[in-house]
Nucleic acid binder design. Structure first.
Length: 411
RNA sequence: GGGGAGGUGCCUGAGUGGCCAAAAGGAGCGGACUGUAGAUCCGUCGGCUGAAUAGCCUACGUAGGUUCGAAUCCUACCCUCCCCA
């Protein structure tokens, strides 16, 4: 009987190990999975989310998709919104102390956050929790007790703390509390597994230690590689502007995927799609030997990602639009409409600056003017370089910079 | 509690009375090239003014002051780092 479970467990592990950076400890995980099959007791798989960034992008989906795999195998996910810790501000990856969010901000963010994750997670096997539920009830005495289980030296093992200390950057005393509280979340939830990016390694390990201190079986931690953003260098994040949001329209999603460096194609496939690993390896081999043009491979990637979030039809359209827009320099079919009232025209003309302002792509008029002066504005394929009035007709195509297309609609 | 160093634009960082909207690099943006990108090269890079070799506004931690004139000098305050206790 145990034998049958063994085979199943090994199969599960093969799936769960895809793309992971590190699993601590694999033996523990095997044991927990085995117990699941023996007792039917689902594992509690936890990941904490910072409520300060409520827009989900592909970077978040790396771990979310892993959570989904656990769900598909029958386990329960706790989508933990760090509403309490969010107010402290996780120092991880931040060069400096972050400002604290108000309670209202946190709550509003958390709501929009939770809404989006069900594009990936299965609602019936997801429990949304807020860590303020237990953390705000801790007494000072309890907090001191928890804090006493760690030492300053231990905390300074954490790379970003050590780095800031080395560089003479401030470290708030409260920041030491963050890993402890996150670890305590695992205790409160009796988590079996916790997921996070590699930058979360330290925090996740604290959870493991703390659970042991509280007499619980320590959680298995699984870290996933950090996903580089469209710049190919920095971790994907909203604040760096190198992210691809899962709610983005197909065309821009497609275009952004196409803009990643070729060297990231494989990683994106592994972490963001369900394309079988063997197939990815085969394509990689073909690419390295010059049999597969990276552009084509990348288009497959972009297609697949758009398909996952918008469906096949949208993906096909995005591919076609992309080819039109960039390979042929034509306006994509799905270009955004730009409505202009006829009353705004004088003798059929509109000042180009007014038109640019309407597109909303510029932060300021100076920026728009610069783009115009530098030759980044095209109307119906012809460059508009002078600061002049232009004749507008229904259906005209305005191209602004490299990637913004608008179809003029006169109303 | 004592002593020292420092807070400059999105970031790093130079600037110590006018030539400073502030060097240099990075990021961003535009152009060329390309496969869409990357690399490379060129340009741009606070804002406003119907278009300017122009003017105005805001900006060098905060608030005042000195001066014809301050990121630069003075005073107070806030914040950070280092050393000693």
């Amino acid at each position: 009987m145990e034998m049958g479970f063994d085979i199943q467990v090994e199969r599960d592990l093969a799936l769960l190990m895809r793309g992971t950076e590190e699993i601590i400890d694999l033996v523990d995980l095997r044991k927990k999975l085995l117990r699941f099959y023996a007792t039917g007791q689902a594992l509690i798989v936890k990941e904490g989310f910072d409520p300060s960034a409520p827009d989900i992008h592909l970077g978040h989906t790396v771990t979310l998709r892993k959570l989904r795999q656990f769900q598909d195998l029958g386990h329960e996910v706790v989508f933990l919104i760090g509403d309490f810790t969010g107010r402290i501000g996780d120092p991880t990856g931040k060069k400096e102390t972050r400002k604290q969010l108000t309670e209202e901000e946190v709550r509003a963010n958390a709501a929009t956050y939770a809404e989006q994750v069900f594009k990936i997670l299965r609602p019936e096997r997801t429990r949304v929790a807020f860590n303020s539920t237990w953390l705000s009830r801790l007494t000072l005495e309890e907090i001191v007790t928890i804090a006493a289980k760690f030492t300053v030296a231990r905390m300074l093992e954490r790379e970003d703390f050590a780095k800031r200390l080395r560089e003479g950057k401030p470290i708030g005393l409260h920041e030491f509390l963050y890993p402890l509280l996150q670890g305590y979340d695992s205790v409160a939830l009796k988590a079996d597994v916790e997921l996070g990016g590699t930058d979360q390694r330290f925090n996740l390990l604290v959870g493991r230690d703390l659970q042991r201190e509280f007499g619980q079986e320590p959680q298995v931690i699984i870290t996933m590689p950090l996903l580089e953003g469209t710049d190919g260098v920095e971790k994907m994040s909203k604040s760096l502007g190198n992210y691809i949001g899962i709610n983005e329209p197909p065309f821009s999603m497609f275009g952004k995927v196409m803009s990643i460096p070729d060297t990231l194609i494989e990683k994106y496939f592994v972490l963001l799609t369900d394309v079988p690993l063997e197939e990815i390896q085969e394509k990689k081999r073909a690419y390295e030997q010059g049999e597969l043009h990276p552009k084509l491979w990348k288009e497959e990637l972009a297609f697949e990602i758009v398909r996952m979030y918008h469906g096949k039809e949208a993906a096909e359209k995005a591919l076609g639009d992309f080819e039109r827009a960039f390979s042929q320099g034509l306006c994509p079919e799905s270009a955004q409409e730009l409505c202009i009232a006829r009353q705004e025209l004088s003798e059929g003309k509109l000042w180009i600056m007014k038109l640019l302002e309407r597109t909303g792509v510029f932060q300021s008029k100076s920026e728009a003017r610069r783009c115009l002066e530098q030759g980044g504005v095209y109307l119906n394929g012809e460059r508009v370089s002078a600061n002049e009035d232009v004749v507008l007709q229904d259906g005209d195509v305005l191209k602004v910079g490299k990637k913004f297309f608008f179809r003029i609609k006169l109303v």
